[in-house]
Amino acid sequence: MIRLLLTILALVLALPGAAQDGVPPAPYANVQLADPAQEAQAHALMLTLRCLKCQSQSIADSDAPMAGDMRSLVRERIAAGEDPEAIRAWLVERYGDYVSYQPRVTSLTWPLYAIPLLLLLGVAVVLRRRLRRGGDA
């Protein structure tokens, strides 16, 4: 746990404090969309995009200026009617799978989804054996 704290501290320390760049944040970095349904969509998406300047934070949870720019990009595109998954795909095209906390199923990541299925199968087998055996003994 200490490392979590230290990690977070280092992260806070590493933030290039907003005072350093003199430009006001992008229009929708810290401003919500007027339509609650759209804002909810945008927020849900932001929670699943990685802040590239930070450590283990989503862009929804970061004070880094670049995260602010990414939030604004997400909100503006949602407001323009773009599908959240299309925005994710746009970012993945530029930064690779690293930018999304929601792993796609690819030749590289299929085990992530196969292993839970295998576990499920394993669970079923174990339960059958354990519970059947004693059944009417």
Partner: peptide, 25 residues
């Protein structure tokens, strides 16, 4: 699942790519 999800980024890197595994998984 927690173990696999936590270590998977390392495995992916061993295979030559970067992935993130987070809350949506």
């Amino acid at each position: 699942i927690v173990l696999v999800g936590t270590l998977y980024p390392l495995l992916a890197e061993a295979l030559g790519a970067k992935v993130s595994v987070g809350p949506p998984y």
